[in-house]
Simulated scan of single mutants.
Amino acid sequence: MKLTIPNILTLFRIVLIPVLVIGFYLPYMWSNFLAAFIFAVCAITDWADGWIARRYGMYSAFGAFLDPVADKLAVAVALFIVVQSHPTVWLALLSAVIVGREITISALREWMAEVGQRRQVKVATVGKVKTVVQMLAIVFLVYRDDVFGLPIFTIGEWLLAVAAALTLWSGLAYLRAAWPAFRGEGRQPGPAASAGAGSDPAAGAGGAENS
């Protein structure tokens, strides 16, 4: 297997996840800045690997599998450490909505691929907006200190609330798109469907998927 630049960026993002956790809990005044910076790098590489994959056609089956895994791992781990350090019902509920939706949609995509309907659950614009708001919210929550009198953590909480609302909105859009397949109206699984289920390079190869 030949590693492409998008794949290398995705692997780098996964390597940064334990570094994020360690940086967050370092007993230094600048640990919050380090952790926020690391997550920001994760968010930037998430965008970069997708742009490079689309711009230069560097799609691969490995990238299609790995990129959404890296994205969801980074978001879930970041939310876990934020909730652990600020254990409020509000943050726990918002985080549960976001992580729960990611698990649900991942399972939905896998099932839709099995029945040959993977193209019916394309990434919508609201999903892309949700990703941007969510990443910004987590950077603020991880940084957590006020800046020039601005309540960064509180702003992060409200941005996370917006991201959670967009998460539910986009999740319902995916479920609505998949509803005909649930009712048995789509193409049934078979050798041809299985062969074509993962052949769509635009479905997430190398970072093309921001849901």
Rank of each mutant, 00 (worst) to 15 (best):
K2I: 11
L3G: 03
I5K: 02
I5F: 14
P6I: 14
L9Y: 07
V15I: 14
P18W: 10
V19H: 08
V19I: 15
V19L: 15
F24E: 01
F24W: 08
Y25N: 08
L26M: 11
P27C: 13
M29K: 12
W30P: 01
N32R: 11
A35V: 09
F37C: 05
V41N: 03
V41A: 10
I44P: 03
D46L: 02
D46C: 08
A48Q: 06
G50E: 09
G50W: 12
R54N: 04
R55K: 15
M58I: 06
Y59L: 05
Y59W: 08
A61Y: 11
F65A: 04
F65S: 02
L66R: 11
P68V: 15
P68G: 07
P68F: 10
V69L: 15
V69M: 13
A70V: 00
A70F: 08
A70P: 02
K72W: 07
L73C: 11
V75Q: 07
A76R: 00
A78L: 02
F80D: 01
F80C: 06
V82H: 05
H86N: 14
P87F: 11
P87I: 14
T88N: 09
T88K: 14
W90A: 10
A92M: 10
A92Q: 13
L93W: 11
L93P: 00
A96T: 14
A96V: 10
V97D: 00
V97Q: 01
I98V: 15
I98T: 05
R101N: 01
R101F: 03
R101S: 00
R101W: 02
R101D: 00
E102D: 06
I105K: 09
S106E: 05
A107S: 12
A107N: 04
L108A: 08
R109D: 00
E110M: 12
E110P: 00
W111T: 11
W111I: 13
G116S: 14
V121F: 08
A124P: 01
T125S: 10
T125I: 14
G127Y: 09
K128A: 06
T131V: 15
Q134S: 11
L136H: 01
A137F: 05
V139R: 05
F140E: 03
L141V: 12
V142K: 10
R144D: 13
R144F: 06
D146Y: 05
F148S: 07
G149Q: 12
G149T: 14
P151A: 10
I152V: 15
F153I: 05
G156D: 00
L159I: 06
A164G: 03
A165K: 13
L166V: 15
S170A: 11
S170M: 10
S170C: 07
L172V: 15
A177V: 00
A178L: 04
P180S: 07
F182E: 07
F182S: 04
G184E: 02
E185Q: 13
R187I: 15
R187D: 12
R187Y: 04
Q188K: 13
P189T: 05
G190A: 07
A192Y: 10
A192D: 02
A192E: 08
S199P: 00
S199L: 04
D200C: 00
G204D: 05
A205H: 08
G206Y: 01
A208D: 07
E209R: 06
E209N: 13
